[in-house]
């Protein structure tokens, strides 16, 4: 029997849909799945976590410490829970939060960690993950006392495995730490879909030409419940914020559908979106390199094609 802990990410007390793939990766013959939850209402998450095979929700608190403001203490509390419930495996989303906490846990326990995994095999302690930004895939075998892995959003197709989830409160003795404190969280324009977890992304490149013109991409993305991305050129030219850059030095995204509008298709751009299920390119140059490595293409001016696409989607 393997006891697998999964670090659950929530927004406003709701379990993010991106967790379901991670929970699915935790499934296995005789696996007992523990959902580790901090800073969220565990009772409210019971039904949805049970649906994906969670047997126990461990609602973790520090003894008076603010775990959200002190990630080092949060890591300490998670380690205490791993020891208490004897979970030898810890999985999380390969998001900025998941990677940060897992790296702190791994460093503190001095055990291996693999991030940005496309798949994990718990029984053999191996993972598959990109090396060289998706040009190759590496299989890593980890031989530590614990098996820690952060899984790329949307990499594992969610599968339900109904179970009855019990809520257990766990208070960890973590002491205090003032070396690092999160002072404030600056919100972005709220309500936007997170790029790394989005199912549909519409991205714009150089010819977009201005911040205002991103609106045509937003409208198109909205019509599919998706998010907007950008090439590095659009970011460096100031048309879009860094936080939505896709690629080598930007976000890694993994949607079902990626629509590249006026993007030439550099290796560095593909580094961030290569694993998308379907890639569509809209480009006025029929010889643009992107057409050689995507699934569908429309040769045309983005300012004509994108609004037409938005209108068609609304039909």
């Amino acid at each position: 029997m393997t006891k697998v802990a999964v670090l659950i990410e929530t927004t406003d007390n709701e379990v993010k849909a991106a967790n379901f793939g991670v929970l699915t990766a935790a499934h296995g013959d005789g696996h007992e799945i523990y959902a580790f939850l901090t800073g969220a209402d565990a009772e409210g998450c019971k039904a949805v976590l049970g649906k994906y095979g969670v047997g126990a929700i461990i609602s973790i608190e520090g003894d008076g410490a603010d775990l959200q403001a002190k990630p080092d203490l949060k890591a300490k509390a998670i380690i205490a829970a791993m020891k208490e419930y004897e979970t030898s495996v810890l999985l999380a989303l390969s998001s900025s939060e998941g990677r940060d906490i897992l790296a702190r846990v791994a460093a503190s326990l001095k055990v291996p960690l693999a991030t940005d995994c496309l798949s994990v095999d718990i029984s053999s302690s191996t993972v598959r993950k990109p090396y060289f930004s998706g040009k190759t895939i590496a299989t890593l075998k980890m031989n530590g006392a614990y098996f820690l892995s952060a899984i790329r959003p949307n990499a594992v197709e969610p599968a339900e495995a109904p179970a009855e989830a019990a809520v257990i409160s766990f208070t960890a003795v973590v002491g205090d730490y003032d070396g690092l404190v999160v002072k404030e969280i600056k919100q972005s324009s709220s309500g936007k879909v997170d790029l790394s977890e989005a199912n549909v992304i519409v991205s714009g490149g150089r010819p977009i030409g201005s911040e205002e013109n991103f609106k045509i991409l937003e409208e198109c993305a909205d019509a599919m419940g998706g998010a907007v991305g950008a090439s590095r050129v659009s970011v460096d030219e100031g048309y879009a914020p860094h936080s939505i850059q896709v690629g080598q030095t930007g976000k890694i995204v993994n949607p079902r559908l990626y629509i590249a509008c006026g993007i030439s298709g550099s290796v560095q751009h593909f580094a961030g979106m290569k694993t998308s299920k379907v890639i569509v390119a809209i480009n006025s140059d029929k010889d643009a390199p992107i057409f050689n490595k995507c699934d569908y293409g429309i040769v045309g001016d983005i300012f004509e094609v994108v609004p037409a696409l938005t209108a068609e989607l609304a039909k």
Partner: peptide, 19 residues
């Protein structure tokens, strides 16, 4: 404690179906 077992090439997609 982490061993790189294999490295595999990921082929690019073949060309797009142009609509």
């Amino acid at each position: 404690e982490t061993k790189l077992v294999t490295l595999e090439q990921v082929p690019d997609r073949s060309g797009a179906k142009i609509i």
